[in-house]
Amino acid sequence: MRMATNCCRRRLEVSDNRAVQLLIKLGHQVTSRLWRLGFASRFFLAIFLHSGTSFRRMHLTFREIYFTGVMSLIIILVSGLFVGMVLGLQGYDTLQRYGSAEALGILVALSLVRELGPVVAALLFASRAGSAITAEIGLMKATEQLSAMEMMAVNPIARVVAPRFWGGVISMPLLAALFSAMGVFGGYLVGVVLIGVDSGSFWSQMQATVDFREDVVNGIIKSFVFGVIVSWVAVFEGYDCEPTAEGVSGATTRTVVTSSLAILAADFVLTALMFRGV
């Protein structure tokens, strides 16, 4: 009997301990995430404080624009073309039911310039260039290149991080613009060349309806914000990763996941602010 009581007591202690352990783990998860967010914010500030080098020695930033922007051109252009072609097909299918096939140009252009251009280009940019930036900085950390730089009295945030950040921020709106341009061309190919929508209506309606301030500039603002998000997440994950193979691979994955979710969330907020009742 006494043995059974002891056994019960022990079980109770174990379950108590497990509950406490669970609470401790939960608390630790929350505080560590908050701490990381705080560190990421301070890191963001540090990038701005140490951005002088990126602009004084523009060749450092141009090099990153080449690696992140120019090297992403093929995926951006091909994706833009196909997205535009799909828009042309789907748009024509819907519009011709209402006898408005001539409005195809408006549909393709507005969808691309306002939404698909900035968003899809940013998602592609996050997976093509963001992951590469994280992996590069992470591997530099794992192979002590960042430590070596610090020991040579060169600030790695100024020399490595800031040029990559600004390279991404500058590339993103340009890539989104090219994505939209290719998309419009894809829509033209399918709608006008393949299906036979009137070319004059396609272009003139697009020209008359798409507003530079409301649509194009807002699209550019969106892609600029997405560029900041992707570049910030990418450089932070690389700089903060565990300096091991697993650490770098985890950071690369986190870059794609976090920046994709952040892009979609920011897109909702920006759309709500920009296009209220327009």
């Binding site: 591997l139 530099m140 192979t143 002590e144 290149q145 430590s147 070596a148 730089m149």
Partner: peptide, 9 residues
């Protein structure tokens, strides 16, 4: 001098 050189690759 770092253990594995830490050259900028």
């Amino acid at each position: 001098l770092f253990q594995f050189g830490a050259l900028f690759t």
